[in-house]
Design a protein around this nucleic acid. Sequence first.
DNA 1: CGTCTATTTGAATGTACTCAAAAGCGGTGG
DNA 2: CCACCGCTTTTGAGTACATTCAAATAGACG
Lengths: 193, 193
Amino acid sequence: MHAPLLKHINQFLLKPMDPAEEKAVTDRFALKAYRKRQYLLQAGDSSSKNSFVVSGCFRVYVVDTNGKEHNLQFAVENGWALDMGSLYKEEPSEMNIEALEDSAVLQIERKAFYELYDNFPVFDRYFRILAENAYIAAQKRLIRSHSFTAEERYADFIARYPHLVNRISDAKIASFLGMTPEFLSKLRRNFGK
Amino acid sequence: MHAPLLKHINQFLLKPMDPAEEKAVTDRFALKAYRKRQYLLQAGDSSSKNSFVVSGCFRVYVVDTNGKEHNLQFAVENGWALDMGSLYKEEPSEMNIEALEDSAVLQIERKAFYELYDNFPVFDRYFRILAENAYIAAQKRLIRSHSFTAEERYADFIARYPHLVNRISDAKIASFLGMTPEFLSKLRRNFGK
DNA sequence: CGTCTATTTGAATGTACTCAAAAGCGGTGG
DNA sequence: CCACCGCTTTTGAGTACATTCAAATAGACG
């Protein structure tokens, strides 16, 4: 049941986890199911958790002061769905995480998560690499948002995430790319696909 | 000489480094001076390093396919100046890092940097927390870039980084915020400085 | 089938950009 | 100490990219 997670962690390590480390993971991550449209996390929730997606798909989004939603991230199989800011603080979340499909995750609460760090250095290594990759990706996304037109961002999205294009609605992709759904529709009309 | 760096690392740890860990740092980080306009890193460089800013100021930027520069980050005292993407790969850098003032850094090469990780788990912890904070900040910046107008982004910058406003030229701030210098000038005209 | 949501379409509008030029500012050398 | 040079900031006119709002159409779900 925990195999996908153990495999994912080991892929980022030079040498695989030992049995004690693997047990620390399997003891602390519990399988949980979410139905489509169910919330894994809602803005204002104070309990924070970290969820590894085994199957299905989630979107992480914020609501701005005008009530508009902004999709920050899509989490599919073998990805993590969390509000990192609230996981590491005791403050209520600013983000929402909603299942876009019936999904299954391996989930850990903040307290148990800290136990991993405190007892096994290997998790500092794994999550360091993950955070670095996430930061590098966020930097690149920021560059694209400053230097690409809406059309270029959409073309880049299709090339980068072809498996998400027919899995996630256009309106949600538009929000992820920082444009309105109406404008994305017009882009699609002009340029094939 | 290494005091600012040791202090910075310890600030992010629950318990301070022991003498062996501190020695590992002082042995591997060398002080280096940069003159204003000197490059710490240029796009295309393959040698990669990580630099902790002791004094002065750097900008990290990329050049897009139209030849336009995009400032990604300003690094001042007690901050890090690096291209994380190229530090962890053997590939040439896509970023440029230029001193905006006469500056001093504590610098480490990739190879010695890996030695730290391989011998002392505490650095996985420290750089994990740093990468997580950087990612959280990058996410928030992306949200602002999608939900704020240029004027709101500038007001937010002033509130967030008051110490940088009179230290970094408007044109470079404009690039950081994803707008043209001309437009920033017009914003400043309308809304008191 | 009927309802609810997602996508498309169009017209009017707005925010920010481009390009060109003038004005301001700072450093340097005579 | 002043004059010049280079760089930054300001200004303005014209334009472009993307948004808003409203309505029609298409699709998905039960």
